[in-house]
Design a protein around this nucleic acid. Structure first.
Length: 370
DNA sequence: AGTACAGTGACATCGGTTTA
DNA sequence: TAAACCGATGTCACTGTACT
């Protein structure tokens, strides 16, 4: 679960830049990263003044820093080594990363819209990241918004902070180290009294000024905005949200998605859930699948070294095909890999990985002619 | 069709903790 | 043990909305 969030850090798109900034494998302190990020963005206004500003833009060094923290929480940065994190690497395997890579290398300047908006594949990618990294908070939120369909920010804040927050904290307690656990236990105790405390304050103004409300604002609203970026929610006027039409249609499937434990998530997401979006794409043929898979493998190999997980390779292949307007389901992709492996048994194969249930794919890219 | 004000978004700071 | 860092709130000006 994402324990550290900030009211400012609600545009997921910026994380893409952070991934690109760390692509060379360098180690960068959070402050240093924030400075680079801020410097890159501060001059953009000169090229393209914005008329309508979305919330959460980086305008100061301090909120650039808040985004770096978010990147760490989202697995785009590995805290311990201060280098690129797992999800950052995964993002860099997508075609969509090119635009931001070029920006980082000084070869092009993106528009503000490019920096903020996510394309179709990225929306799914980030939804997956969210579900993986923010369990079980975002699952709670997702189920609730699907049930409500339309709601105000206030309702959501109270619901999230007074029901989901303490419950989620309790669920993640066992995954924390001793020091952190102590801290969170106190937090749970406090959170259980949130509702009562809020109701005790009858004057609205002093509620808004209370430190409890300050806390609400840093924890709940960003999650709603993340869902806006992923296309699940839409903002309708000040402080109001609605579930987007296509997510309304998906109803039960979204509820199912939001009910899964992390261990079950990946398979359902890529096997069943992404399929629901396939109608916007043309079907990929075998050749396209194989070419794409090998291409993705090469990218992964650069970032992950020898340990290229087969299932991750397959997931990313789906994503990259989608970026190219094509679709293939997990089963088809898996069988494509298998038939390649049969055709080139000494150049493509699978070995057991170090982690349990992980298979490592090996493809001798130079020698393969598909 | 004003107007008050709750609610919002941008922006800032503080106090504890780690590091050199 | 001072500096750097970092996480956790704190705060203030404005503005959309719900009232007259």
């Amino acid at each position: 679960m994402i324990l550290e969030s900030h009211g400012d850090a609600c545009r997921l798109g910026y994380l893409r830049l952070i991934a690109c900034l760390l692509e060379d494998g360098s180690q960068k302190s959070f402050d240093f990263l924030a400075s680079i990020l801020y410097d890159m963005l501060r001059n953009l206004e000169l090229y393209e003044p914005l008329t309508q500003k979305p919330i959460g833009l980086i305008t100061r060094y301090v909120n650039a820093r808040n985004y770096v923290t978010l990147a760490a929480e989202m697995g785009f940065i590995d805290r311990a080594s201060q280098t690129i994190g797992e999800f950052g690497k995964l993002y860099l395997c997508l075609d969509s990363a090119d635009k931001f890579r070029e920006f980082v290398e000084g070869k092009s300047i993106p528009s503000h819209d490019d920096l903020i908006a996510l394309n179709g594949a990225e929306r799914l990618f980030f939804l997956w990241v969210l579900l993986s990294r923010d369990y079980p908070m975002i699952q709670h939120v997702l189920r609730w918004v699907m049930g409500r369909r339309s709601f105000t920010r206030q309702e959501a804040m109270n619901q999230i902070m007074e029901e989901f927050y303490p419950d989620s904290l309790r669920k993640v307690l066992s995954t924390l180290d001793a020091r952190r656990r102590e801290q969170i236990m106190r937090e749970i105790e406090e959170a259980e009294g949130f509702k009562e405390k809020r109701l005790q304050i009858d004057d609205k103004m002093s509620w808004i000024r209370s430190s409890q409300y300050a806390k609400y604002r840093h924890i709940a609203p960003p999650r709603l905005e993340w869902l806006v970026d992923c296309g699940v929610l839409r903002r309708v006027g000040r402080g109001k949200y609605e579930v987007g039409e296509n997510y309304l249609e998906l109803g039960d499937k979204v509820l199912k998605l939001a009910s899964l434990k992390p261990a079950k998530l990946d398979n359902y997401f890529f096997d069943e859930f992404v399929k629901l979006f396939s109608k916007d794409f043309s079907t990929a043929n075998r050749y396209e699948i194989s070419r794409t898979m090998i291409e993705v493998y090469e990218r992964m190999r650069t970032l992950f070294g020898d340990e290229v997980s087969l299932s991750t390779l397959e997931y990313l292949t789906i994503m990259v095909l989608m970026e190219r307007g094509r679709f293939a389901d997990l089963r088809t992709i898996h069988s494509s890999f298998n038939s390649l492996a049969l055709k080139f048994p000494d150049k493509i194969y699978v070995i057991p990985g170090r982690k349990r249930n992980m298979n490592v794919a090996y493809i001798s890219v130079e020698e393969i002619e598909v």
